[in-house]
């Protein structure tokens, strides 16, 4: 068989038809293909084999299965995203709740009350030390001598906290006839505070030498001073000085004055007003 016949067979195989009988015709057909087919014996109509049908069905099945798998994966992913989003939201709520609790615990009012409960007082004196040579600059008392001497008469004794903080209230605020609620009660805060005190004590026992080490110019030694404690002034028995000025009388003769307020002014004529006195 010539090389040209081999080529033709190969082509026929590709079309799935039987071999041509005439080698001469086939040989001619290399030069004119249409003419050679017309001259060939008519063959039965081509039919797809079962194999092809199975392959096509399988392909469709595979595509369908892949699509289903992808859909399921996407749906599952959506649910996972939703679950994680919910988890994130929940954690955000917890963070907010804890931060709120912390900021209230840090409030000066709460610290003052707790310090008061623990019996803490402001330090009576502070000593200033120069870091460069460790020399003591000065020890200063909290209150001046004059202040202490007049304390029994004039002391501005402050006991505990005087400044309101509704966040420390256990009762729920009422708005528009419907109650609102705050979950963290005073007891919760007290418990949290006690825990923090315990942690602070543990931390202090581990590191007691670093106090004020980083002060740039002068270190301050403040004995037993709470972060925010009340001020209690010492009492004394001596009378206040300058009583003569205190008991001075005012003169009330005619004069003029004007009073300014945020909303307006009150203008007075010279003859309407007693003379102002000022010290």
């Amino acid at each position: 068989m010539s090389a040209s016949q081999n080529v033709l067979r190969s082509i026929d195989d590709d079309f799935g038809v039987e071999e041509y009988e005439s080698g001469a015709t086939a040989t001619r057909s290399i030069g004119g293909d249409n003419r050679s087919r017309a001259g060939a014996k008519r063959r039965p109509a081509m039919r797809p084999t079962v194999m092809y049908a199975l392959i096509a069905i399988a392909a469709v099945g595979v595509v369908g299965a892949i699509q289903l798998a992808v859909s399921l994966a996407l749906a599952q992913g959506s649910y996972e995203i939703a679950a994680l989003t919910n988890k994130s939201t929940q954690l955000s709520r917890s963070t907010q709740s804890l931060r709120e609790e912390l900021t209230v615990l840090e409030s000066p009012q709460y610290l003052a009350e707790q310090a008061d409960k623990l019996g803490m007082q402001s330090s009576a004196s502070s000593t200033f030390i120069r870091l460069s040579d460790g020399k003591k600059i000065k020890t200063v008392a909290t209150l001046s001598n004059a202040y202490q001497q007049t304390a029994d008469t004039y002391a501005m004794t402050i006991s505990g906290n005087l400044i309101a903080n509704s966040n420390l209230s256990t009762s729920a605020a009422v708005t528009t006839g419907v109650s609102s609620a705050v979950g963290a009660t005073k007891e919760d805060l007290d418990t949290a505070f006690t825990s923090l005190i315990g942690l602070a004590q543990a931390a202090t026992s581990d590191d007691t030498t670093s106090t004020n080490a980083a002060q740039p110019q002068a270190a301050v030694e403040k004995s037993a001073q709470p972060p925010m404690s009340s001020t209690t002034h010492a009492e004394a028995t001596e009378a206040a000085p300058q009583q003569s000025l205190q008991s001075a009388e005012n003169s009330t003769t005619s004069g003029a004055a004007k009073q300014g307020t945020s909303s307006g002014e009150l203008t007075l004529s010279a003859n309407q007003m007693p003379t102002p006195n000022s010290r």
């Binding site: 001046s144 300058q242 009073q259 009150l266 007003m273 102002p276 000022s278």
Partner: peptide
């Protein structure tokens, strides 16, 4: 003297001002 602060030099001034109300102090 009651305005003094222990350990620090303080400079300051008192004020006791009369208050005008309804045309008189």
């Amino acid at each position: 003297p009651i305005a003094a602060v222990s350990g620090y030099r303080v400079a300051g001034k008192t004020g006791t001002a009369q208050i005008a109300e309804n045309g008189k102090y």
